[in-house]
Design a protein around this nucleic acid. Structure first.
Lengths: 353, 353
DNA sequence: TTCAGCTTCGGGTACGTACCCGAAAATTCG
DNA sequence: CGAATTTTCGGGTACGTACCCGAAGCTGAA
């Protein structure tokens, strides 16, 4: 009804401060060449008027383009997980490329630490204004971000994190809580409180921050309740199906009375395949990520629940976080935890990554 | 690495066509005053160069503002549900108001059809370029959108829909599937397949498209499985707690062996309150929406699951859909189904509406 | 032929901000 | 005290598009 407040711009600020537009501009961009007195006066007016710069005009007038580098694992046959963050990154790119943002993507091999190092070096060789990366290898990554710190290049972690670093933001799951939820879902499906549960960890990496946190959350749920469940854990270091089958066979021979399995990552489809081959239809199975293979077993009922942390949105938000800080100097939450989504047969059709 | 194609603009088109920028502009906007010959020549060049207008410059130079009207229920004490869509609308507004979009919000009372009519008329009296509305009252809404059709004003439905209308888009849940999921979650928590289930519908409205769809989905799950559950349904037409208590008491006296309750909307907290007062802690309870009252009972374990359709995002997307079509003539999906989210004690902390 | 009326088109300014360049004022130094 | 710096500031142009205004050119009627 009422047209609220007039939109005001640098011109109005300049008029009120009795200075030129150029001076106001200098203050806004924290450039040098303004006396303290003038600067304060202008800042006061900006505060008072709650000035919001016109992004359109700003980006239009600015000639410089912003260069962002992305450093993530390539999506392999083994797990297509990283396709999703990449989709989110592409989506962000197409939204902001007309605003003068350019994105270069660098992939590394999750089985090859050296490839990470190499790509990291390649990024440092180019002039880059910000980096979005998955800190998959702790040591190599620490080295890389040391250089970024020196050059004052902001960087954002997605999917996993390294604690106590100078990263602009971490965008990803709260893994402890995610494991906790997995335990709750299993419990809900199992009557009584003395069961045998199997945690399955299929991964080449040993020195990883992630899985321990998930497992901790998982166990803590039962501790809180004082349940007398027996929880067994197995590690499978070779990710191919053959080795998964072998290790699982062994484990189930040793513990034939397992009621439920909890797989700590997206390779749950391998486990589902095994369970199906053994006609173990009543065993509960929970794992991670909205991947085609997993969804197939979800549909059939072999997998009961998938937990998912919106990987596509992680990519999207990661890029946007860099964009926001670099273009608007906007502040960003240091830790942005993704929702812990539950995907099941009844809602997978409408799930959005 | 390589700087792809040069970005070309109207200036370049004008140069190639040997005309002025103004003429190119006329062609782009289908304005009159250009000879057929010139028009064709320019169009050919636009095609050839795959010209993409610079949105920044375009919006900056254009003086006209777009007026959007929002027509949604006011958030009452009874249910704060509509606060969430409103938040999303405000968020969208703050993003695009600098692009020359103005939003006016009109609230109506869910207990008063006349208030809907009145606000609808108010909207039609003003010059409006697009409308976002919740079609809560079928008859009144049908009348309203008839006028919109006549005036060629695009309109978007959120949260619920009226089938076979000329709406630009529907943004909201797939209700059938949502009820289906509710049934699946109950089943997962109940061993065996012969239980007594109670569907609770607390609402003043009778002629509503929504609840029947949810119930249909709910029942269809058990039909598929061939379960022999007994499903009872009660309708509570007064939404205050007193009447909820009374009706539920009656129902539970008649059916003392109820194992689980499914509440078809956000008033599940009233039911939880009743169950708690009766110390019925083992009865499963599922309902809708991420509201403070509901979350309290979720934490305590009285409510087992809440199903949620991202109401905030519905508001946000609704506004953006109108913006996209009106500003960029972008096409929009006629039906955009929201995810059917499962909120429970283990993940409510990180849920995002 | 002249002039009114119409069609077709180009010049030029504006949108709000970024930033170059040079001028004026303040400061330092010999 | 004058000159050389340095600091502080304003004018003005550019970004790519929208759109006003008026100038040609053309048509047809008197």
């Amino acid at each position: 009804m009422n047209q609220d407040k007039e939109i005001i711009g640098v011109k109005e600020i300049a008029r009120r401060a009795n200075v030129s537009i150029a001076t106001v501009d200098r203050v806004i961009h924290n450039r040098t060449g303004v006396s303290v007195k003038t600067r304060n006066k202008i800042n006061a007016i900006i505060q008072e008027l709650d000035y919001q710069p016109n992004i359109l005009a700003s980006r239009l007038a600015s000639k410089k383009t912003i260069h962002l580098a992305i450093l993530i694992p390539s999506a392999s046959d083994e797990t297509q997980f990283w396709q999703a963050p990449l989709r989110g990154i592409r989506r962000a790119e197409s939204e902001i490329k007309q605003y003068g943002v350019h994105i270069d993507t660098y992939f590394f091999d999750l089985n090859d630490k050296e490839s990470f190092r190499k790509q990291a070096r390649a990024i440092l060789d180019k002039k880059v204004n910000g980096v979005l990366l998955s800190p998959s290898f702790v040591e190599e990554c620490t080295e890389f971000i040391k250089s970024c710190n020196q050059k004052s290049i902001p960087y954002v972690f997605i999917d996993s994190t390294i604690p106590h670093q100078n990263n602009l933001s971490y965008i990803g799951p709260h893994l402890f809580q995610s494991g906790y939820l997995g335990a709750q879902l299993l419990t809900y499906g199992l009557k009584g409180n003395s069961h045998k549960l199997l945690i399955v960890n299929i991964s080449k990496e040993v020195d990883n921050f992630n899985y321990p946190q998930i497992e901790e959350g998982f166990r803590s749920f039962f501790q809180e309740r004082g349940d007398s469940n027996a929880i067994v854990r197995i590690d499978i270091r070779q990710t191919g199906y053959a080795s998964v089958r072998e290790e699982l066979s062994k484990a189930l021979q040793q513990h034939p009375d397992v009621d439920a399995l909890f797989v700590t990552n997206s390779r749950v489809s391998s486990v589902a395949r095994f369970l199906e081959s053994q006609s173990l239809h009543d065993t509960l199975l929970i794992g991670y990520d909205y991947l085609p293979d997993n969804i197939e077993y979800l549909k059939k009922g072999t997998i009961d629940f998938l937990i998912c942390h919106k990987p596509e949105e992680q990519g999207y938000r990661g890029v946007m976080a860099l964009y926001q800080t670099l273009v608007f100097s906007a502040s960003v939450e240091k830790e942005y935890f993704m929702p812990i989504d539950i995907v099941t047969r009844g809602n997978y059709e409408y799930y959005r990554n």
